[in-house]
Amino acid sequence: MSIEINKQKCVGCGKCRDVCPGTLIALDENKRAYIKYPRDCWGCTSCLKECPVQAIRFYLGADMGGTGSRMHTLKRGELLDWIIEFPDGGITTVTVDTKESNKY
């Protein structure tokens, strides 16, 4: 399990690096973020939720059954969209109301 960062989209704000609980993300000489220790990712998704331009996507490692889908988030006011892109181009979105409690 890990993340990938799209350097073309990244605007170099450094928020993902700041927030990672393992300090696994660094900025390169052009101030673009990259994951320096991909094997050490806990999969907490803090970095994706922090990124203002949706440059970070999260995926499950093949060793834990991942099949190449990627997930990112988009904040819309109090709603948080979790967008899953499948390898065949399909997309599913699950929207969570951040002001609503879990049912279970």
């Binding site: 998704t45 999260f58 099949t67 997930m71 599913t92 699950v94």
Partner: peptide
């Protein structure tokens, strides 16, 4: 309905489980 609630509940604590359900 329970299933939808579970997908959301896991996103609020262990997002990989929701991704796993969706992609598998």
């Amino acid at each position: 309905e329970q299933e939808q609630s579970l997908l959301k509940a896991y996103l609020n604590m262990a997002p990989s489980q929701t991704l796993h359900w969706a992609e598998s």
